[in-house]
Design a protein around this nucleic acid. Structure first.
Lengths: 328, 328
DNA sequence: GGATCGCGGTCACTTCCTGACCGCAATGAA
DNA sequence: TTCATTGCGGTCAGGAAGTGACCGCGATCC
């Protein structure tokens, strides 16, 4: 620990943990003379991390926002929270490639005890309020494994549950992870099938690195996202619905509720047309109900049936409960 | 850049950006001889960051999970995603003190251009599907400012919108940020009122550091969380409800839906009692409806009325839509 | 068996790091 | 205003590193 570079790192971590540090205090903490501390600060500045200094009786050093991002020195708990946060961020479909890279970095360097904690937290993850259990959320462990493997050009072996329920084992060279809609897809070269395939990540079970690396192949397509789109939409797209609903409310209000999951177009000043292609009908129905406005389902008929069903149930609940309340 | 410690940092970053690095390649990248690279790797190991090495023709170095967390070397995009993820994590009420610290660290060292991007992203945040618009989400900028100020013992000035709508300006010495339920509260010493106060963070507008630091005061309470609880519950708690509902489904199913927002107790093998104290009745009703089981509202009566209301509306929607479908 | 790679020892040379001085400038309190 | 505190940077000498060039060894894979 008497090293220079180690001390520089510790200084960086101290400056990240608290804003203002009086010089003598820092020097004492690092067990060097104030002169050496000044030199260390200079070193940090040369590395591109600007350190502000204030002379005077209440002076001290402070790490200022600069041109470059310094390495983040985080402790166990902070790393846990970061990992959990970015995982749920990914699971909701927001967040792109950089989020995946960040997660990969964190997971890679995480001590085993932390990974164990992370797995424990995973199981108690807050359920997405509107997703029914038919929409399986992405398994974070699988996602992390795939991301690591892709980055390191390592083959992966995983079990894949196809739409008809059969389960197969695959050996794949991962090429890219693509978020599309609310889902994540893996594009890769299937070594058994000897062809490029698209896999839905929520159908992948127990992925693990195969231990062998591979040389990168040239894919037969230019745009990966387009490849995924055609593959997903071309095949039996399994449970996807086309929904069109007229809602008696302004487009702003409705759009605010659906966010990016639906396309909202104004019809009149007080009604609008909502169209979307959700995985499940639960979510849209929940959102429609919570808007508090009248609506009419154009398609699919199942949604209308569901609405009637929910309506009947809620009406019963209202009646039961009012009766119960009157009995008090 | 010819420094030893800078090189060590760069080595760390390289090892985080890709798993396997052949030795000669790394040496070339760092512009040192392979011997020096070996010494650098040794240095990292001495610092507690285990580096695996594989001899042989396909060998190389890899950063292994170890006892300590190495500093995370992230690029701009990754830092953005991390910040966004942890902010929405905080906004949903999950995530504790460590999450706040992590956010503070990231925000503090973030270059200005990144902060600007972060602000832009904030405005386009996805709306929480079940929160009605009366439940204002936490303003991330405010939260970050308060967290920074608290950590650095800096006074903050902010506008506070009280429950009756009047707006006042406050100068406060922040003591602690406390998550309670789905809300965040600031406990601090109000310099104008000369007393300890609790502020709801979603009622704070445009907070900024006052530039002056303060010496820590001894608060007149031991348990901050308890202080907040009594203050919040004692005062006009503004829109809080006590909900008790009997659901005709197993406790597991119901508990999985409500997560940590409700206390679920089994009554019989096929029904359970759900109790919670939500800010709004929309969320609970949405969740109750989406379970797909019969339920009875014990309290409050408003929830029963709402259920009846929703039921009527959904029933109308179902009828309208079926009629429309039949006309095709 | 050979090529490739990582490991670690040694040696001489060079670089730097460190602590101890020094005077100077800025800041805030008495 | 004066004074103490704090940061800044220069210089110097001794010591501690870092560095590259060797070397032989062992592991791994083809």
């Amino acid at each position: 620990m008497a090293n220079t570079s180690s001390r520089t790192l510790r200084l960086l971590s101290l400056l990240q943990a608290r804003r203002y540090w009086p010089g003598p205090l820092l020097a004492g903490r690092l067990e060097v003379s104030p002169r050496t501390l000044r030199r260390d600060v200079d070193r940090l500045r040369e590395l591109g991390y600007p350190v502000d200094a204030h002379p005077g009786v209440d002076g001290g050093y402070a790490l200022a926002p600069g041109a470059a991002l310094p390495p983040l020195v985080v402790d166990d708990d902070e790393a846990m929270e970061l990992a959990v946060a970015i995982q749920s961020h990914l699971a909701t479909g927001t967040g792109g490639d950089a989020a995946l890279r960040a997660l990969t970095k964190i997971i890679q360097v995480m001590p085993r005890r932390l990974r164990a904690r992370l797995d424990a937290v995973r199981s108690s993850t807050t359920p997405a309020p509107w997703s029914s259990d038919t929409v399986a959320p992405v398994d974070h462990a699988v996602l992390a494994t795939l991301a690591l493997a892709r980055r390191d050009s390592e083959r992966v072996r995983f079990g894949y549950r196809s739409i008809d329920g059969t389960q197969t084992s695959r050996l794949v060279e991962p090429f890219q992870l693509v978020p599309l809609g609310r889902r994540w897809y893996l594009v890769g070269y299937d070594l058994d099938r000897r062809d490029w395939r698209t896999f839905r990540i929520d159908r992948i079970i127990t992925a693990e690195g195969a231990g062998t690396t591979f040389a990168s192949r040239t894919p037969p397509f230019d745009d990966v996202a387009a490849f995924v789109r055609t593959n997903v939409l071309g095949s039996a797209s399994g449970g996807r619905h086309r929904v069109e609903v007229i809602v008696e409310a302004t487009a702003e209000i409705v759009s605010a509720r659906f966010g990016r999951w639906a396309d909202v177009q104004a019809r009149t000043s007080k009604s609008c047309l909502v169209s979307m292609e959700p995985d499940s009908l639960d979510g849209p129905l929940v959102t429609l109900a919570s808007i508090g406005a009248e609506f009419t389902v154009l398609t699919p008929p199942e949604l209308a049936t569901m609405a009637a069903d929910w309506g009947a149930r809620l009406t019963r609940a209202g009646q039961n409960s009012e009766g119960g309340a009157a009995a008090f």
